[in-house]
Amino acid sequence: MGKSTLLRLIGGFLRPSSGEVRLQGKRILRPTPQAVLVHQSIVTFPWMTAIENVMLALKPRRLPRDEARAMALVALETVGLQGFEDLYPKEMSGGMRQRVAVARALVADPQVLLMDEPFAHLDELTAEGLRQDIYNILFNESTPLKSVIMVSHNLTEVMELADVIYVINGSPATIVARVDVSLARPRNPRDPEFDKYLDRLYNYLTPRGRNK
């Protein structure tokens, strides 16, 4: 089992061979808009404009078109894409496309966001910008989100964003450590405490560190 499989199990895309996944005490037996997955490979539909991509998440609710459009516009504005709603994904950069995917996830009004290495396919500068934006969105009081489960290989990114870190390693993957991060926000990567946490995480992931 790997990290992406774990997210798919949590999201109800795959069924666990043992155990179960519960959200607010209720079992997740199939994918639900209450827990929306944001993929590592950026998923936008090339035949739809940015706003149509976002409105896709509202189709099952059968809202009036104007209302759905208004909600999608708000979501696009939240991710910094106001004014770009009529562009097709091919007319956008990778970072903009991933913002569209995040807006689509947010407009579904989920309780949990499942993020599978959402910045992995972006260059470092774009990833950093989007990371900051996601940070602002997630910690915005108006966001109905209760939680975000993000998988990442980027330890600095993990330290910047997470309150609780589960370190998984090996094949099949197992949890090798749980780290509760008690640093105040916003976190500064130059803070010596930040570095200490990073060292701990590296140690869990290297053979030498694990054998200590």
Partner: peptide, 14 residues
């Protein structure tokens, strides 16, 4: 792509 289908599943498309 599986990822596209997962989006459809996520939002419960008929």
């Amino acid at each position: 792509p599986r990822e596209m289908l997962e989006v459809a599943q996520n939002f419960r498309f008929g």
